[in-house]
Amino acid sequence: MIDFSGPYFEETENRLMNLHLVHHNLTHAIMFSPDGEVQVPSELLYKKNILVIRGNFTPLTKVQLDMTKCGQQHFNEMGNINSEKTIVLAEITMASLTVGNEINDADFLARVDMLNTQGYTVMISNYLRYFRLRAYFRRYSQLQIGMILGISNLELIFTEEYYKGLEGGILEAFSKLFQNNTHLYIYPFKNPDQGELVTAHNFQAPKKLQYLYKYVLDNNYLVGLENVDESVLDINPSEVLANIKKGRGNWENQVPESIAEMIINKKLLGFVDK
């Protein structure tokens, strides 16, 4: 990390300086504490239980808050976790921050600010594949690692093309991902057409991977999240973003109140008051 301070750097935005370290592959990850300060990852993660939720967070919605809440409950129950030795991260990959090879600085800062208001420690990384993210965490801690996923990301990790270029393919990736003290917590998805819930237990993996899926599910490498707030399952983050750009509306009820106020008052994420 880098930190500019002093009278000559009052206009310097340290968060942007550190973001560009990741963008230019000078480091693999950076972190920001809930108060927005740049942090040294090794100090935050050392000998900690780590729970992470990955997303675009444009913006953070109530469904993602519920994912975190349910994930924390199951994480604590499964591992007999000491909450004082646990860190909860909201992770954004560089792939979701770039358009072409460009970064929208204002968009990035808005996402971090919104997550910080909800108490999240924010991580920006260039680890697109989950097993590489796990390996990064293992540099600093041998305690429990939990990753909260929606059904769309579960589909992704059971897509063989996702591991193109990896010599051992999906089997190599899973051997590196599902090692000791690592679990994926799967949040259900409500099918908008049929209204039924897709969960970790009725998810249909590709036919030739169904036995592999059964193995990781039966051995609790995948854990289906329960006791979810079904009132938020109809929220579609992509639709929320599209509606924000149309002005005020029902989307305000689909995000935390403080975030709705930030978006409106600061005109974030393309909001235009019509």
Rank of each mutant, 00 (worst) to 15 (best):
A90P: 04
A90S: 01
E91R: 01
I92F: 03
I92S: 00
M94E: 02
A95F: 08
A95E: 05
S96H: 03
T98R: 00
T98S: 03
V99Q: 04
V99W: 07
V99E: 05
V99M: 02
G100Y: 00
E102T: 05
E102D: 04
N104G: 02
A106H: 09
D107E: 00
D107S: 03
D107N: 01
F108I: 03
F108E: 00
V112D: 06
L115Y: 06
Q118F: 02
T121Y: 00
T121W: 02
T121V: 03
V122F: 01
V122W: 04
M123K: 03
I124C: 01
N126E: 03
Y127D: 04
Y127A: 07
L128A: 02
R129L: 08
F131I: 04
F131L: 02
F131N: 09
L133R: 09
L133V: 06
L133K: 09
R134N: 08
A135S: 12
Y136T: 06
R138L: 12
R139Q: 11
Y140F: 15
Y140R: 14
S141P: 10
Q144A: 14
Q144C: 05
I145V: 11
M147R: 14
M147V: 11
I148E: 13
I148H: 11
I148Y: 09
I148M: 14
L149S: 15
G150Y: 04
I151W: 14
S152Y: 08
E155A: 10
E155N: 12
E155K: 14
E155W: 07
L156P: 03
L156M: 10
L156H: 07
I157H: 13
F158D: 09
F158W: 08
F158G: 06
T159I: 10
E160Q: 11
E161S: 13
Y162T: 12
Y163I: 11
Y163M: 13
G165T: 06
G165S: 09
L166V: 13
L166W: 10
L166P: 07
E167R: 11
E167T: 10
E167Y: 06
G168D: 12
G169N: 05
I170Y: 15
I170G: 11
E172A: 11
E172S: 15
A173N: 03
F174D: 08
F174I: 06
S175T: 15
S175N: 15
K176R: 10
L177E: 05
L177H: 02
F178L: 14
Q179R: 06
N180G: 12
N181V: 05
T182R: 07
T182P: 10
H183Q: 15
H183E: 13
H183M: 08
H183K: 13
L184C: 15
I186R: 13
Y187G: 07
P188R: 07
P188L: 15
F189R: 07
F189K: 14
N191K: 09
P192I: 15
P192L: 14
D193T: 12
G195W: 11
G195P: 09
G195S: 10
E196H: 12
L197C: 13
L197R: 04
L197S: 09
V198E: 14
T199C: 05
T199M: 03
A200K: 07
N202A: 05
A205I: 11
P206I: 12
P206L: 08
K207W: 07
K207N: 07
Q210P: 01
Q210I: 04
